[in-house]
Structure formats: C-alpha cells, structure tokens
Amino acid sequence: MAKGHDKRPSKREADTERGLLLSLVETLIPSSNANGAMPAASQLTEFREIPSEEARLVYGPLLDLILTRTPQEARQSFASLDLDAREEIIRGLGADHPEVIGGAVSQTLIRYYGAEAVVEALGLEARPAHPGGYALAETNWAMLGPVKAMEPIYKPTPGREEEG
C-alpha cells in the first residue's frame, strides 16, 4: 500500500457505515414477539461489533447495490426509512441480484441463530450439547405390534430357500 494515503474512514464515516449496516441487518431480521421476544439482528453484539473487514466482505456487495441502484432520496436516507420501505428497496434489488441478497441473508441467519441471546430467546439452552446431552423418553414398542404380525418380506437367496 502506498505510504501517506491513510484510507481508513474518519470516525463519522465509520459511524455512518455502521448505522447503514445495522439498518440493513435489522431489515433482514427485525425484532418480533411472534415466537417469544426475538431481538432484531441489529440489537445483537454479533452485528454491532462485527469487525469492519468482515462486515465489508459479507455486506459490502449489498450495501454497494443499495447505494448505487436506489433512487437518490432513498440512498441518502436508507437508514432512516421505515422497515417496510427498506424491505421494499432490498426486494426490488433482489430481482436482478438474487445471489447478492442470498449471500447477505444466509450470513445474517448464521450469525443471528448462532448468537447466545437468540438461542435463549428460542427457549433453548445456550450450551454445547456435550457433555450434558439431552434426554429422550423411552419408546413404547407396543407400536410395533402390527409389524410383528407380518410375514417375512425379504426374498431368500435363490437355491438356499430350504436352508431356512
């Protein structure tokens, strides 16, 4: 990299970038009371503190699209639009760029459902499965009754039928 050209964004630019990013992930996964109190993606540390490099890698292509392909007014104020308006803009872009939207959505889902707060909000235990494991009730094998009453359904080896 050439010396003397510091390409790092100023604090204000960085804040704007982060604001735009959070408004984007909030649009992809907003908060909801549908399945308990589910946070919006933008409320989670996983997104609030996502390293800039990673954010650019994951969301750069979609943010670029939003900034270059949307009407001037929306571009200026994407972050301040309401959720419905933001969603409409992104869906509009999706027709021509499904892979860009798909990539950003899957990465958001991975981070969101990997987050401890979300796992707990779903009513699950936020812990590794091992060593605690999970309990499964013993099965009532009486259900097998009708099958046990069946005749054998396999074909014996030709020529070996008599051997039983």
Binding site: P30, A34, I90, L109
Partner: peptide, 26 residues
C-alpha cells in the same frame, strides 16, 4: 438446530427474511 434450519428453510423457500422472517422460522 436453529442455524441449519434457517439455512435449509432459506434454500427451500420455507423461511423468509424481513417482516415475515420470525413467523416463517417459527
């Protein structure tokens, strides 16, 4: 688990994003 379910659902159209996300995921 939830991550795999969300990704599979995205792939087969059963889980959406945006306003309908939580209903479809749930």
């Amino acid at each position: 688990g939830p991550v795999t379910t969300a990704l599979m659902g995205l792939g087969n159209g059963r889980v959406g994003w945006g306003a309908k996300h939580h209903d479809t995921f749930g």
